[in-house]
Every structure is written in C-alpha cells, then in structure tokens.
Design a protein around this nucleic acid. Structure first.
Length: 218
DNA sequence: CGCGTTTGACCTGCGC
DNA sequence: GCGCAGGTCAAACGCG
C-alpha cells in the first residue's frame, strides 16, 4: 500500500483540507475540512488561535499520520495526490443543504472486486500523552475492549449530541504506546459546539487549507 | 438527581 | 456448526 508522510502540522492540514485520501489504498477518498469532519479533531490543536484551554501536548502534537481502515499507517507526501475537491474558496465550512461539510471515505473492500464502499471512516495516529483529544465535540464512552495482539485496551466513544451517531475508537499503538490511534466513523449532523473553521484555496496549487477559525462561547 | 464511566454479558460476523 | 474476536448493550456505580 502506498504511503505518504505528514510529519508536520502544516502537512496534516493539507492532508485534511486538500488531498484525496491516500489512506484507502489510493482510492478516491476526499476530505473536506470543517468542524464536522474528523480532521477537525486535529485542526483545532493544530492552530494557535485560542488554544489556551488545551493541554500543551494537545497544542503541539509532534507526529501525525493518516491510517487506512485496516489500521495500516499511511504517510502523506504533499503534492502526490489528485486534484482537490471543489468547495468554493474562502468559504466558511458550515453545514450545507445535505447536512454538513464533512470527510467521506470511499474504499474498496479487499477481495470484493471493484465495488467501492462508502465508509465515512478515517483513522489518525498521533503522538500524544492524552488518549482523548479535545476535538470540540462531546463524547460519551460506551465500551472498552481488550484487543487481541495488543496490550492496550480499545475504548469506544459515541457523540453525545442527540441524533448524532458518530463514533470513534481510541487505542494506544501496540508498537509504540506513545502514539494514540483514533478512528472516526460517521459524520456529525450538527456543528461543533465551539468552533467553525474557514477554508481557503491557493490559486497556484489549487490546494485548500484552513484560513482561520472562530471560537464561540465564553 | 443527572450525567458519564466501568465492566461483564450479549450479539454478530467470520474463518475453519 | 463451532469458536473466536470485535463491537455494543445496559446495569451498577461514582461524581459534581
């Protein structure tokens, strides 16, 4: 499986906002940035604006990778992927008519021929002391399970917002416990309680990236 | 009292 | 069909 690298936060942002996802085996998986996207979980700690409420390790994660559904880590090399998705530049990433600006992964199931399946699933591997990162959403833990071939248990969380069935699984990397593997599944059907992100497009490269963010609340 | 976590039980899919 | 592993449920419990 092709790997690419995003060793810096800037790369991670480009990964989230601009590139077709390499994590699904090179198939078309496009990330749209936004508070509802799984990527937002990492955009928030990635930006310096109003991070005072975040722990230092959340503000400064020093490694981040993109994972495929099967948990195999991918490394993202900027500039090696397809053209960015078509959202208009300089637009606030807010819910659209269909529900929400979001990340959607489309992946082929191994051994099932060419029929792709839509997963709305993405995983990140990130070095952090904190197991649960502050992504702006409120999560309710509903399960904990030990995983075969891993000394670390896997925790299951569900978005506690009524009517939103987004789930995430969090576990420590079995090979390097200093890394946390987080898998998001589903799409938030509501805005983040605290943040709106703004996307803009670079005219030269056509890439999208986060131009800013706005925090609500006190 | 309300909300979130813990944890054992239960369900389901998959490989043999 | 059986066993295993992963995912979910729900009662019990803790905390503010």
């Amino acid at each position: 499986m092709a790997l690419a690298s995003c060793n810096s936060l800037a790369d991670a942002v480009f990964l989230d906002m601009a590139y077709r996802n390499p994590c699904d085996g090179g198939l078309a998986s496009t990330f749209y940035g936004g508070a509802g996207s799984p990527a937002a979980a990492f955009l928030r700690p990635a930006f310096g604006a109003a991070p005072a409420d975040l722990a230092p390790q959340q503000r400064q994660p020093d490694a981040l990778e993109c994972l495929s559904d099967d948990g195999v880590s991918s490394v993202v090399v900027p500039g090696t992927f397809g053209t960015p998705p078509p959202p208009p530049p300089r637009m606030p990433v807010v819910p659209d008519a269909s529900g929400y600006a979001h990340a959607r992964g489309t992946a082929a199931v191994a051994g099932e021929g060419s029929t792709p399946r839509t997963t709305d699933r993405i995983a990140f591997r990130m070095r952090s002391e904190e197991e649960v990162l502050d992504d702006g959403y409120k999560w309710r833990k509903y399960g904990k399970k030990s995983v075969k071939n891993s000394p670390n248990p896997r925790n299951y969380y569900r978005c506690s917002t009524e009517g939103c069935n987004v789930k995430k699984r969090v576990e420590r990397d079995k090979d390097d416990p200093s890394y946390v593997v987080t898998m998001y599944e589903g799409v938030h059907n509501h805005v983040s309680p605290g943040t709106i992100y703004y996307a803009t497009q670079d005219a030269a490269s056509g890439r999208f990236f986060v131009a800013g963010m706005h925090q609500f609340g006190p």
